[in-house]
Design a protein around this nucleic acid. Structure first.
Length: 782
DNA sequence: TGGAATGATGTTTTT
DNA sequence: CATCATTCCA
């Protein structure tokens, strides 16, 4: 097997390990995917049946790519038969097969985070609990945490520690919410993400024949990103592996960044207890990055106390130091990064796909988007509100869901009156009460011919049944028609498409296009399934299973040559020649939520480690001294992580940024700053005043030759963050435009700064009173 | 009942 | 500032 020659010694040793438990601790960039890939190829080369290999990856995309690579080595035919995917998708598939064991339909719905939150909200309301105390989001995370530790509602209520925690937090009734949540999910034949792991555990626990079946089926188990598995995942793997102990886990404790969703580094330590005679392989040679980057990353992670000793090194060149850039505002940061990329692209012909901009939170992407667009640089944002989160997409998918599983209450509520069918709030309220009293799904109330809902009048009931009749007609086709065919039919006959078609606003057209795109997606899905297996008749509910578990990272990158923008979490496993890590500020990165405990801070540090090690050639860090957050300007301090990098690998491109605290200057400075913040400014926002002060005090370190005037000299957008002196002050008599009302004239200005109110006369729309801090008024020079 | 307008509220990361 | 939720009016 020639491909083994492409591996170094440690890699080859790991890849050719066949039987018995093994763990690979793989430093960043040490070729662990390659090891996994070749090990699978090696196993198959030695006669192992692909069907008996289970490989669990972190994203579906990782699975797909790995399959492709294996296919190249040993042939596609074999590769496609390997069981490979994320925990959630693989076990969702198995649950589908075995659903009736736990009294679920095989067409069960997978509730996404939003569905499950809205259900929880509903329950909290129904129990007359104060949703200020019982915040749906935190109740949800409490329940999720329990499920990840295999604690069901009954167990939750009995658990003394949990109960005292909840009592202490003033929320003793979470157990009750959980109990209702459990039964409502079941009633709706729905599972949330955590259930996919939870119920899989139930299957293996309560049905020995199934345990045996899958133990026997999966003779070789492989788990990637093992450091990010939680207890529920750990236990599934352990049980599946119990028969043969052919288990291979691969991970890097230094890259564990999913503690917030229950990931448990302890699983790595547990491994030693469960398989005392396991073989440990360490991959320590980094092939990805320059010495400067590897050493810088090492020096950062050394600040963590909790880690498995390892020495990541590289024989790559020394490379450039890590650049630190300071900026006055977040927008300036955006412009600077864009300009740098522009330069490198045009002066050194660096392709766009070599660049990545990584940030801590999705909200940070905006400033970069704007700047990149101004310079005409192509980019692609990964994550954020993905395609499948859009309202119109969720609407159509809700129809699909309802057709696959009519008891899906969340889907029912979503579309029963969209497009409008005269089924209003009061009707729905009655229906919901009825369903709650009888503890059956909304659908079952409507369909109950024998016992018509008492509270519902004749007309509303008829409308509900008309709706149900339509869904039923679709249902009849579910197993008869191919997914794409039925999807199209539903889109048309539900009235959704025509509803959107009527809307000719730009957003309406975009929504319509999105629906088309979803339908294309269903079609692509069907065709692909037919390609793999001409006999297969993929149904709409197969499609739903796929869609529910898609990740942002799973989108196809057919538009190749673009700058990548994403959160650091989303960047895990990826690499880029030139990486910009932005927003390196205290309270942002590390996040203020993570400042509470040492453990949280260490996780943030690992996140920073992940960010640094994405870079192959250059890495630049930047921070801003003021930033927009919660709609207002806040001042920020550089991240402590910057100081944690060994000085030898760092370069401050902007002398002012050198070492501590740009704002250090004692209390008097502090006060001055506060005064600035309180000072009124013409546009009702203190940012411009601050911005101008800053720019004047310190001339720009580097000129931005490529910035263009986006205004053409005519329009001047009142952008408090423009920071380039173009801020226009509005006064009575000025002519302005407004997004919705069009052109108008300012009649009166009153009130003091952040609350300046303008009275504007719009010939088209009449006289309006507008608060400047909200209304986007653009002055037109005449 | 439906829609628009106003007001409150909130932001970490994701399967 | 953006989304959501509630409220108010037709």
């Amino acid at each position: 097997m020639e491909f083994l020659n492409e591996l170094n010694e440690a890699q080859r040793a790991a890849a050719t390990h066949v039987d018995g438990p093994m763990m690979v601790i793989a430093g960043a960039g040490s070729g662990k995917t390659r090891v996994l890939t070749y090990r699978i190829a090696y196993l198959i080369g030695r006669g192992v049946d692909p069907f008996s290999i289970l490989a669990l990856t972190f994203t579906n995309k990782a699975a797909r790519e790995m399959k492709e690579r294996i296919g190249k080595v040993i042939g596609d035919g074999e590769a496609k038969n390997i069981w490979m995917g994320t925990f959630h998708s693989v076990f969702a598939r198995i649950l589908r097969t075995e659903a009736e064991r736990i009294n679920y339909t095989r067409n069960f719905t997978i509730y996404d985070t939003a569905d499950s939150r809205s259900l929880i909200k509903d329950i909290i309301k129904g129990l007359n609990l104060d949703d200020k105390v019982y915040k749906p989001a935190s109740v949800q995370s409490r329940i999720s945490g329990a499920k990840n530790n295999l604690i069901d509602a009954a167990g939750y209520a009995e658990h003394p520690e949990i109960q005292s925690e909840d009592a202490q937090a003033g929320r003793p009734h979470i157990a009750t919410v959980y109990k209702h949540y459990e039964s409502r999910c079941f009633r709706a034949q729905a599972m949330d993400f955590d259930d996919l792991l939870f119920k899989m555990n139930i299957l293996l626990r309560d049905f020995p024949d199934l345990l045996y079946k899958y133990q026997t089926k999966f003779q070789y188990l492989m788990v990637d990103e093992y450091q990010d598995t939680n207890f529920a995942q750990y236990l599934i793997i352990k049980q599946l592996a119990a028969q043969r102990e052919n288990i291979c886990v691969v991970g890097d404790d230094a890259q564990s960044i999913y503690g917030f969703r229950g990931a448990n580094i302890e699983n790595i330590l547990n491994f030693k207890h469960d398989y005392p005679d396991f073989t440990l392989y360490k991959l320590e040679q980094n092939y990805r990055s320059t010495q400067a980057i590897v050493e810088a990353a090492n020096s950062v992670i050394a600040h963590n106390t909790n880690q498995i000793p390892k020495a990541v090194w590289t024989s790559n060149g020394e490379g450039k130091r890590i650049q630190i850039n300071r900026h006055y505002t977040d927008n300036e940061e955006g412009r600077h990064v864009a300009t740098r990329i522009f330069d490198m692209h045009h002066q050194h012909q660096v392709p766009f796909s070599d660049f990545a901009i990584l940030y801590r939170t999705n909200a940070q992407s905006r400033a970069f988007e704007e700047s990149l667009r101004k310079l005409n640089l192509p980019y692609r944002i990964y994550g954020g509100t993905s395609f499948y989160q859009r309202k119109e997409i969720k609407d159509l998918i809700a129809y699909f869901r309802l057709v696959a599983n009519p008891r899906d209450d969340e889907a029912f509520k979503r579309v029963v009156n969209y497009p409008a069918r005269g089924i209003g709030k009061s009707t729905m309220d009655k229906l919901i009460v009825e369903a709650a009293e009888r503890n059956i799904a909304l659908w079952d109330v409507v369909m109950d011919e024998a016992m018509p809902p008492t509270a519902l009048g004749g007309a509303p009931l008829r409308k509900l049944r008309d709706f149900a009749g339509m869904i039923r007609r679709f249902m009849a086709e579910l197993d008869r028609k191919a997914a794409d065919e039925l999807a199209l039919e539903i889109a048309k006959h539900s009235g959704l498409v025509s509803e959107l078609y009527r809307d000719k606003t730009p957003e309406g057209v975009a929504r319509y296009d999105n629906i088309q795109e979803l339908l294309n997606g269903v079609q692509a899905f069907s065709e692909q399934a037919r390609e793999t297996d001409p006999e297969a008749r993929p149904t709409l509910s197969d499609f739903l299973l796929d869609v529910a578990l898609l990740t942002d990272a799973d989108q196809d990158d057919d538009d190749l040559n673009k700058i990548a923008m994403m959160t650091i979490h989303a960047a895990k496993g990826l690499e880029f020649k030139h990486v910009h890590i932005v927003g390196m500020e205290e309270n942002l990165f590390p996040s203020q939520m993570a400042m509470q405990s040492r453990a949280d801070l260490e996780e943030e540090r690992r996140l920073f480690y992940v960010a640094l090690t994405r870079a192959e050639e250059t890495c630049a860090l930047s921070f801003a001294q003021t930033r927009y957050r919660f709609g207002q300007v806040i001042t920020a301090e550089p991240s402590r992580f910057i100081d944690e990098i060994d000085e030898r690998y760092v370069e401050y491109s902007n002398a002012k940024a050198a070492r501590p605290t740009p704002f250090a200057g004692g209390p008097s400075f502090d006060q001055a700053r506060k005064q600035w913040k309180q000072m009124p400014s013409a546009d009702g926002n203190n940012a411009s005043a601050f911005g101008r002060l800053a720019e004047k005090a310190a001339p720009k370190a580097d000129p931005k030759p490529f910035r263009r005037s986006s205004t053409g000299g005519k329009l001047q957008r009142v952008d408090p963050n423009a920071g380039d002196g173009s801020v226009t002050e509005l006064a009575e008599g000025h002519v302005v435009t407004h997004e919705r009302f069009g052109r108008g004239k300012i009649v009166k200005l009153e009130g003091t700064a952040p609350n300046t109110k303008a009275t504007v006369f719009f010939p088209e729309a009449g006289t309006k009173q507008l608060l400047l801090k909200f209304a986007k008024l653009t002055r037109i020079d005449e």
